[in-house]
Design a protein around this nucleic acid. Structure first.
Lengths: 187, 187
DNA sequence: CTGACTTTTTGACATTTATCAAAGGAGATT
DNA sequence: AATCTCCTTTGATAAATGTCAAAAAGTCAG
């Protein structure tokens, strides 16, 4: 749990009572590679913090597997659309490696938001951080060639290139695995 | 200002005192078409609410004009990256139509967050809503053909097609204006 | 170590979209 | 009405990327 609060404190300092309340609803999970955290077309009720391991979020679009997001150590994973809107979403989240996670239930978080101003603030800052990351990822995709998208990833997330299978990485970058394989040999 | 609070109340109900404090820092702007709200490479210190009119956010990428976002009535406009991170950003925001806007200064908002739990909550919900919208826009871009991106826009934002010049719309959709012109005639 | 399986690379070809160039409209101004 | 400017369409061609097929390389259980 220490890792979780190390990350949290970078967003905002919690009061001891707020931190205690948050710690009380955290659940530790130790799960094998391939385990499915969220199934497609269900409501995402948990926010996951990755202490160790790697997750990928994907869905099927026109019959093809599209990887939407990858979460590594010290970042969060959930279906953003479903967690916020409370509607089912097509996304599935699975583990690419055996992982250690901490989960918070949506309802618990909502209660904490009401009771603790500082946790509401933490929530705001976490969402804002997610927005910044998604905006950067969006920018990488918008009007970039396949080669530049790969280069951008090489710069921003070099560890993904070692840890994530090529086909999944290609899909994350919005290209086929053949194209990624060729881009890679071009550098 | 009524329009602004009509939108706000859809996110959360504010206490009278919170609402009053927020109203006190809102500034009304009436500006002509072409007016620049935020210049590239500056820090975005204001969040704008569009009561009437239309804005576009764009930047230059490899010498080309890339439209990143469009805000119409009852939505917000700012450089997300800059407003949140407090760093300069390449984005410029300009008015595509003569507009009526309400602006809030970053510093005022931060003070309100500290003083009023309900405004911190509003902030969280606004950012969350922004995240949902960006995620949807990202999904439209990820592994979609030009034609499908155009169709998705036709469904989600039909008014943009009437109000936004074709070249800007094309760039928003990540294609050239020639391609958009052809997609359009295909439907 | 070997066979079965999965992942990655390579090649030939097809499709999509961009680029460049030019021609049409539409609205504003004289 | 003629001119100007801006916006949109159309056509020819080029470049980027996808698709399909097969070979090569890596992984792992037995």
């Amino acid at each position: 749990m220490d890792k979780f609060f190390e990350v949290v404190v970078q967003f905002t300092r919690l009061s001891p009572v707020g931190q205690g309340a948050l710690a009380a609803v955290l659940k530790r999970l130790e799960l094998p590679k391939g385990h499915v955290l969220i199934k497609q077309n269900t409501i995402c009720n948990h926010l996951y913090f990755v202490e160790q391991g790697l997750t990928r979020t994907y869905y099927i679009k026109n019959g093809k597997d599209v990887t939407d997001w990858i979460s590594a150590e010290n970042t969060f994973a959930c279906s953003i659309l479903s967690f916020i809107t409370r509607q089912p979403d097509r996304r599935t989240i699975e583990l690419l490696e055996p992982s250690v996670l901490w989960s918070v239930h949506y309802d618990d978080l909502e209660k904490l938001y009401v009771d603790y101003h500082d946790i509401e603030r933490l929530g705001r800052l976490l969402v804002a951080s997610g927005l910044v990351q998604l905006q950067q990822r969006f920018d990488d995709l918008h009007f970039s060639t396949a080669l530049n998208r790969y280069k951008a990833l090489l710069k921003s997330k070099p560890d993904y290139i070692r840890r994530v299978p090529l086909g999944i990485l290609a899909s994350y970058l919005g290209m086929t695995q053949e194209t990624l394989s060729r881009m890679r040999s071009q550098i």
